[in-house]
């Protein structure tokens, strides 16, 4: 399981993953249809905005925000928690462990390989956003802005992936981590900026939200895409995001390793 063999296998795994994603494209369409909540929220907040702007958000700002939220969700979504808990339950994780490559890398490539197809969906949506909300409210207008967004979306993907690994691995400790995943989804929907921008929270709650990881999974990349922050503020938030990436990376890998030890005990 050395780094070199893993790196050598990576292009092939990505290619297989991409072929799988193409083969199961109908499944991806279902996924995309299932993540249309930002569009519903857009309809709702547009109804609110018809009575006048909310904070800095008017009709056009809401359009830019929620279409961006839709795009970010497409790019960062991860189903590794379900995958791990399913494989633990069915025992197929044992097969994965026999291969000379970490199962986590296999999961990660499966998710990553789906991204090209998702980009194909995201680009027209971004186009619509530029047309409907105006370029400066839909996408970064400078190269630096795109750079910040790229950093933000990679961080968001990593946080989502690590949280998924963590939740999935918990199924090795608990009988069923299904309930925990539900709670996670609830927290994600409310606290991440998925249903409404995090700045709509009252100040006290806002402070708590800034310390939780969810806001960095969705709200931050969306804000970076729609150009809500100045450079200094953006860097501060990105710093907090990458601190979460590092922290969750260490914790989830440690829990994964301990969980695997238990799994071995089950099988043997």
């Amino acid at each position: 399981m050395s780094l070199r063999t893993s790196l050598k296998a990576l292009p092939t795994m990505l290619r297989i993953g991409f072929s799988e994603a193409v083969a199961y494209r109908a499944e991806m369409v279902i996924w995309v249809l299932a993540t249309t909540m930002p569009l519903i929220m857009l309809a709702l907040w547009s109804a609110v905005a018809r009575g006048g702007a909310v904070g800095r958000f008017g009709q056009a700002e809401f359009t830019g925000y929620f279409l961006a939220a839709f795009c970010v969700r497409q790019m960062t979504s991860s189903w590794v928690a379900w995958l791990v808990s399913y494989e633990v339950k069915q025992g197929t994780l044992a097969m994965r462990l026999l291969r000379p490559i970490s199962p986590l890398l296999a999961y990660a490539t499966e998710v990553l390989a789906g991204i090209p197809l998702r980009v194909a969906i995201v680009l027209p949506v971004l186009g619509i956003s530029v047309w409907a909300a105006g370029a400066e409210r839909a996408v970064p207008t400078s190269l630096g802005g795109w750079g910040l967004f790229a950093l933000g979306i990679v961080g968001a993907w990593l946080i989502t992936f690590y949280l998924n690994v963590l939740l999935g691995t918990l199924s090795l400790f608990l009988e069923s981590s299904q309930k925990l995943m539900e709670v996670y989804m609830v927290l994600f929907f409310v606290c991440s900026g998925y249903m409404f921008p995090v700045e709509f929270f009252p100040p006290g709650v806002r402070t708590v939200i800034e310390w939780l990881p969810f806001r960095y999974q969705m709200g931050l990349p969306v804000e970076l895409l729609t150009g809500a922050h100045g450079a200094r503020e953006a860097w501060a938030l990105l710093g907090a995001q990458w601190a979460w990436v590092a922290g969750l990376g260490v914790v989830s890998m440690a829990v994964w390793r301990r969980g695997l030890a238990r799994f071995a005990a089950f099988g043997g």
Binding site: Y24, A26, E27, I30, W31, L33, A34, T35, T36, M37, I40, A43, L44, S46, A47, W82
Partner: peptide, 27 residues
Amino acid sequence: FVVKVDNLTYLFTSIFDAARWPSSVFR
């Protein structure tokens, strides 16, 4: 018709999610 269908329940609940708002907000 769709072979890999793990997500169907998820699709179902997420469509239903829109029902939590009074329908007059949708134009």
